[in-house]
Amino acid sequence: MAEKPSITDEQILSLLEKETSYEQGFKALMSAYQERLYWHVRRMVDNHEDANDVIQNVFIKVFRNIKKFKGDSKLYTWLYRIATNESITFLNKRNKKATNSLDDELSTVAHQLTADTYFDPDEAQLQLKAAIATLPEKQKAVFNLRYYEEMPYLEMAKVLDTTVGALKASYHHGLKKVETYLKNIEHNSL
């Protein structure tokens, strides 16, 4: 996980407001959030090429709309919300395409994971990723934000625009599904 940014969100926004300091603001935002958002998107879509496409769209949207950001929420929350929404939209499209495809083998999660040249997991991680990939898109986002990003429920509620209660239920349910998937694999391998 990336370190906390040394520059505050307010400072970044202030730099981006002025034409003279816009480039500095751009670099500050990228430095603070580029990697964090990339890894969030990558965990959502798994494949590097897809993650690259999605993250480009995310940042283009961010910088085109940064002046509309009114500061009602934290910049950090706003960025995660855009990244999550873009990832979910992408996954929906990809899944729709895979469902329409006659070649079932190509559409399997395992194939997508192993086809990525930038993915070199150990056996346990491959199983975990395969387990997470079985979750519905929104539950996958909840799981990733809590499990990998260790985000507080309150922040997650702002990112995903839902209640803390609904998030807790979704996360616990997701945990159970992943745990069951892993147990089944362990059981079958014995």
């Binding site: 070199d120 991680q125 945990l175």
Partner: peptide, 23 residues
């Protein structure tokens, strides 16, 4: 605590070595 209570197998896995790489 959440992990220990709901997914003990998962809590034993390392989060740091996900296997993802970038160019």
């Amino acid at each position: 605590e959440e992990l220990n209570n709901h997914a003990p197998l998962l809590s034993g896995l390392s989060k740091k070595q996900e296997g993802y790489k970038v160019p």
